[in-house]
Design a protein around this nucleic acid. Structure first.
Lengths: 263, 263
DNA sequence: TTGGTTATACGCGTATATACGCATATTATC
DNA sequence: GATAATATGCGTATATACGCGTATAACCAA
């Protein structure tokens, strides 16, 4: 570090890569970062921040501007862009999921882009009760005439576009669902179901507990990966719908008693 | 920066590029921008805004005109904005409403298209807690970095795109808000606040009870009308924001002790 | 037209932001 | 533990952005 760094507040972030990571994350969340702000936030000199920003800019990850940086593409809308990834395979998965829903069932549907697509493939003739913590899903169901939609309240998690927290969990716990479509961030046969947010993990646990059948919709890319927060073992799922194929990938789940549907 | 940086409210947009983006975005939404308006909105001098506009104009992105700017192609916007009836007046109302929100406040925002627009005019610098029963509003707030959003759960009413019912009411009752923007379906000085759905009426009653200040946003067309279900007398409102003008229309409300803001 | 109001342009001073070179601290490597 | 490779902070020079004062130009109503 510098010639002398007498003290540095609390938030000292010593490693360059770590700072880069945080900067990108913050940028994604706030839509802009200020050099001076980052400096005081991470307890390093503005000079260092500027070097960081220069590096991130030259590798094309951010757009450098006077005073700070902006996302490379105007309005890096994390959700919209994510929505368009994987569309091909997600359609098949969502369609298979929608076909599972029967009349009069109470169905818990978690957030996530794949689950959101279920709405598009749900028959307009189907009459069921859909319970969800995803405002986008509720909206997508708004023109399904025969569905009853229960929106779960709670803290709105902006990145994932779902509600979380104690209110959400309480409401879930007061429900007995026939079917639950769990949003899958990542799934690993041994590690289990994991997500990137603690609050989300709790909500998912509650959903699993509230439903007779628990279905995971997951595309190949997310299988075999893991994230910081554990929801539970893979065996909490009763069924898996995926575009993955091949015995080597799917057997570890089948051997845990999970029904696997490959689209 | 300038010789002296007096202060700048909250809405300060520090980065030049960022302002450029916002200006373009706003231009796309409203079909025109005014220099003076941009100045107060972004908390920078008109001079700076003019420089911005000059730059955008010289790079061909906008058409500079006296007092502000227009989209480069005359037909670029009209259809989109004309599609939304009485957008013009709603913009003024929503903007006035957004300006009422202060840092750290807890603000209840009801559903409705006018209320939804508040999101667009809320400064990205504002840090407040927004409580709403409107999934579209929650989504619209998703990229306001400093806001905390609490989504009220409940039965999702498809036509109005809001949640209702006992769950919603219970959650509202557990909250003490500084400010409440009540969605106005119709308002009559003697009949009072009325809506077309029974459940909605109950939710609005709860919202009124949970908030210190109750603000109604209403366009001229809805004033003096009434609907089947009564929420309460007009005097439950502490303030009215409207595009209506004329003493004959507004005085009946003023005489009930309601502050009236005419945009 | 004319006169007033408002918007704009220009130059300047100043506050910031940035780049660069160098000394020092930290980390990695042997 | 010594040495090399980075990373960081600071001083300094320079560039940029901004706000203000003032002069000019465009608009608007009699």
């Amino acid at each position: 570090m510098g010639t002398l760094k007498p003290e540095s507040e609390a938030g000292q972030i010593a490693l360059r890569e770590e700072r880069h990571q945080y900067i990108l994350e913050l940028l994604g969340r706030e839509g802009r970062v200020l050099a001076a702000d980052l400096s005081s936030r991470y307890g390093v000199s503005e000079d260092t921040i500027r070097r960081d920003l220069r590096e991130l800019a030259s590798s094309g990850k951010i757009q450098r501007v006077h005073g700070g940086a902006l996302p490379r593409r105007a309005e890096a809308v994390p959700f919209v862009s994510r929505q368009q990834i994987d569309t091909e395979s997600k359609i098949g998965i969502a369609r298979a999921a929608a076909a599972m829903i029967r009349d009069r069932q109470v169905v818990l549907i978690d957030g996530g882009t794949t689950n959101l697509r279920i709405a598009s493939y749900l028959s307009r003739e189907r009459s069921a009760t859909i319970v969800t913590n995803s405002p986008p899903l509720a909206l997508a169901l708004a023109d399904h005439p025969k569905l009853s939609v229960l929106m779960l309240g709670g803290n709105f998690l902006k990145e994932a576009r779902v509600t979380t927290g104690i209110e959400t969990i309480r409401q879930v716990e007061s429900i007995r669902a026939d079917l639950c479509f769990l949003g899958m961030c990542s799934l690993h046969p041994e590690v289990g179901i994991t997500v990137g947010d603690r609050e989300e993990a709790y909500v998912k646990q509650a959903m699993i507990g509230a439903s007779t059948e628990v279905v995971g919709l997951i595309s190949l890319g997310k299988m075999g990966t893991s994230l910081p927060y554990l929801v539970g073992p893979a065996s909490r799922l009763t069924r898996l719908i995926t575009d993955a194929s091949g015995e080597d990938v799917l057997d570890p789940y089948r051997s845990q008693g999970i029904e696997v549907t490959s689209t």
